[in-house]
Amino acid sequence: MTVTVPDTDRASRTEYWLDRARSAAEVIEAEADAIEAEATITERAYRALADNDLFWILIPEEYGGAGLDIVSAFKVVQEIARADGSAGWAFMANACSMAVAAGFTDPDGAREMFAGEPRGITAGMVVPTGSAVRVDGGYRVTGRFQFASGSAHASWIGAGFIVSDDDGQPIIDENGQPDAHIAWIPRDEVEFLDNWNVMGMVGTGSYDYQVVDVFVPERFTMETFSTDPVRPEPVYRLGLMGIGVGGHAPVALGLAERALQEIVGIVEGKIRPGYTGPVGESDLFRIDFARHEARYRAARAFVYEVFGDAQAAVDADRPLTEEHNARLRQAATWAQEVAGDVVMFAHRWAGSATVRQPSALGRCVRDAAVATQHALVDRMTLVDAAPAIMPAYRR
């Protein structure tokens, strides 16, 4: 059952859900070693998130969700990622894909997925790497997909596909592009491949999976690149890029925040040759810490400013500009770069504390190393963003 949230201002609602996230985070921190060992969110960690209704923070209130704005939702993601990077990543993948599904899937299908009991959770790859043929009432979908983060506890698995004709050739839509869609498939109709063996983000359970000639009713599909949500809530007008790609930013912020917390504790009593006292009291450490802590806070402020500006635009029923979209990509990528630098700063000062397992900071190091490799935060996103940002600086 969903909780009844007081009808208050946005700041109070944000704090309400952050309190729930902090409660879940306590459990997740305690479960972090087991999450990594099991390569997925544990049952206890899942229950902490589900019992606090956190998976559904971006689901409409009409469907029993929290109906949060994007900044409030991302602050919840950051808190879960601070507790554990893998849990934060998987939770982000669930919450953001659910937002996309709720905002753009046929309302009858979305209501069936999210408004009933048990309430649905989505995961999976929405990039159109599969193929399908149109049949009476829907599609028959085939494909192999990667990176189903958070799939162990998901009830619906996303599968992006391009519609083909009877000869196997892609069908071109009215915009001259391949006719691309996303299907939401019940988990028991998907075959998972036990192949998630990685150095970081181990606990995300991001297994490959495949479907072979699976029938998907039309009501459980959506157009991949649609910019017209079927729901009235403004947050969905941020689209696949603003919600799905943007979700990587608070995960990065959570990793950086946790690394700073860990290193402060590690160096308090750490003695190393060449220092006259504890490492944490040295000028070298303190200036290095102050610089990196400032970078983290600057990145956090920038991320929430950029996404707040975009949310304000859609709240006021204004279209997102090219600069809005460029800033969203810029912020998501830059947050990853900053997080990587902050985590490596902590790693360098920690000495053997990140080498011996288990180690929360060691997980941050491995998780950040993997997070920065994601294609959606490649440096080329900054190349693409710059042309829409540069005109503001022309004199």
Rank of each mutant, 00 (worst) to 15 (best):
P170E: 03
Q169L: 07
A180K: 15
D166S: 14
A152N: 13
I171H: 00
Q146V: 05
A148E: 06
H181P: 01
S164D: 09
G168Q: 08
P178Q: 06
A159L: 13
I171R: 12
I162T: 15
A154M: 09
Q177F: 05
D167M: 07
G168L: 08
S164Y: 02
D173N: 15
D179K: 08
D188M: 02
A183N: 11
A183D: 10
A180M: 14
I157E: 04
G176W: 13
P178E: 07
Q177H: 06
A183F: 13
A148W: 05
A152K: 14
A183S: 13
D179Y: 14
D173L: 08
V163K: 03
A154L: 10
P178L: 06
P170M: 03
S164C: 11
G158M: 14
Q146G: 03
I157H: 05
G160P: 05
N175M: 09
G158T: 03
W156T: 02
G160C: 12
Q146Y: 01
H181Y: 15
E174T: 06
Q177P: 00
E174Q: 13
A148D: 13
S164G: 02
A159M: 15
G168H: 10
V163Q: 06
I185G: 08
S164W: 01
D173Q: 08
D165V: 01
S155E: 05
G160Q: 12
D166Y: 00
G168M: 09
P186N: 02
A183Y: 09
G160Y: 12
S149N: 06
N175I: 00
Q169I: 01
I157G: 05
G158C: 14
A180E: 15
I171S: 00
H181C: 05
A154P: 03
P186R: 07
P186F: 01
V163D: 03
W156P: 02
D166C: 00
D166F: 01
I172E: 14
I162M: 14
I182G: 09
D179M: 11
G176E: 11
I182S: 10
G176R: 12
A154I: 08
P186C: 01
A154D: 09
S151F: 02
S164I: 11
D188K: 09
D167N: 14
I162S: 15
